[in-house]
């Protein structure tokens, strides 16, 4: 049954690390015609996680698509991770996913079992999310790729945008950082098997639990931490809200052992891209080791939710999250906009 193909050997970039850099993306989209529609509540002008279109007074459609080359060798696990990652954008908007379509590229080296394994992983993960895959589109390509176009629903009054951080909000992160460094080290055979197991487990864990808990609290803004890294996504949150985001690096959950790997220079290209994009808006206050800074820029695949919650609700939300997600941690807060930077990193 098991396929012998090592999927990651068929791809140059892995997972969300393959994402085009945030700065480059903005340039690519510049000058394209934009149409407005009063019913389009969230469009691409705010680089949010998904678009939202109002259908009625109490219902809006959430749409998103996400796909990438293999980040793990096992086809079934790759399918699960890619699906969890794609569906996550709906959760990050505060919505509930309902329908999905497969987006797939099949390379000539993939046998039937491998293709089937990827799809089965996607179907089962979608089912776990209460989402039905109703079809899709598959093309031939040199590198395998997989993901989903996902549709979900949200109440128009309860959309959680990624750019509405309010001064005074507390920031909570629901998954540990270090995925990019782990998969880079794994390519070199330098990732501890237990670290690798935890990284895979975390990547294929849906953000559903975090979303279902979060919507019961006064959350101002939310995004999922993926290819742009914690600081890249924090920057989008800070800029849109006209605020400054303060990250307390000592409180950040990291996958075990990734600091040593980052110190050793096992850093993915995406880390440098993210650093290039966000560094000029970031100020480091106090002693923050280079390896920790690097990890804050590390591109994540199927990362956790970054939630900006009103201070009065922060402890209640955090304790409700920790019941189900032991990793969840308070990682910073939002301040009034500082003149010289959008992000402050503290020890």
């Amino acid at each position: 049954m098991a396929s012998d193909i090592q999927l990651t050997k068929l791809a140059e970039c892995a997972g969300c690390g393959a994402k085009v850099g945030a700065g480059v993306l903005a340039q690519l989209l510049e000058g394209l015609p934009t149409r407005t529609d009063p019913k389009l509540l969230v469009g691409y002008d705010t680089s949010d996680d998904a678009s939202v279109y109002q259908l009625s007074d109490d219902l809006a459609l959430v749409q998103t698509v996400d796909f990438f080359p293999p980040i793990v060798d096992d086809p079934y696990l790759f399918g699960q991770i890619a699906a969890a990652n794609a569906i996550s954008d709906v959760y990050a908007m505060g919505g509930e996913p309902r329908l999905a379509l497969n987006v797939m590229c099949v390379s000539p080296q993939m046998d039937r079992e491998a293709v089937h394994g990827v799809l089965r992983g996607g179907y089962e993960k979608a089912y776990e999310a209460g989402t039905i895959i109703t079809g899709g589109h598959t093309i031939q390509d040199k590198e395998p790729k997989y993901g989903l176009a996902v549709s979900g629903f949200v109440h128009p009054g309860r959309i959680l945008r990624n750019d509405r951080a309010r001064p005074g909000d507390v920031l909570i992160l629901t998954k540990a950082l270090g995925i990019g460094v782990t998969t880079t080290a794994a390519k070199a055979g330098l990732a501890d098997p237990e670290l690798y197991r935890q990284a895979v487990e975390q990547m294929r864990t849906l953000n559903k639990t975090a979303r279902d808990i979060m919507v019961n609290f006064d959350v101002g803004s939310c995004t999922d931490v993926t290819g742009f890294g914690l600081l890249g996504h924090s920057l989008e949150m800070a800029r849109g809200g006209g605020a400054t985001v303060v990250i307390e690096s000592g409180h950040i959950p990291f996958l075990p052992g990734v600091r040593a790997l980052a110190e050793m220079g096992l850093l993915p290209e995406g880390m440098y891209r993210n650093r290039h994009f966000a560094e000029s808006s970031t100020r480091v206050e106090g002693e923050v080791p280079l390896a920790i800074q690097d990890l804050l820029y590390d591109p994540q695949t199927s990362g956790g939710l970054l939630i900006a919650v009103a201070e009065k609700d922060a402890q209640a939300l955090l304790s409700a999250l920790k019941d189900r997600i032991p990793c969840a941690a308070q990682v910073g807060y939002v301040e009034a906009k500082r003149a010289d930077c959008s992000i402050v990193v503290k020890p």
Binding site: A176, E194, F254, A260
Partner: peptide, 8 residues
Amino acid sequence: PEPAACCP
């Protein structure tokens, strides 16, 4: 080696 920090 550093001890496991999260999700033991």
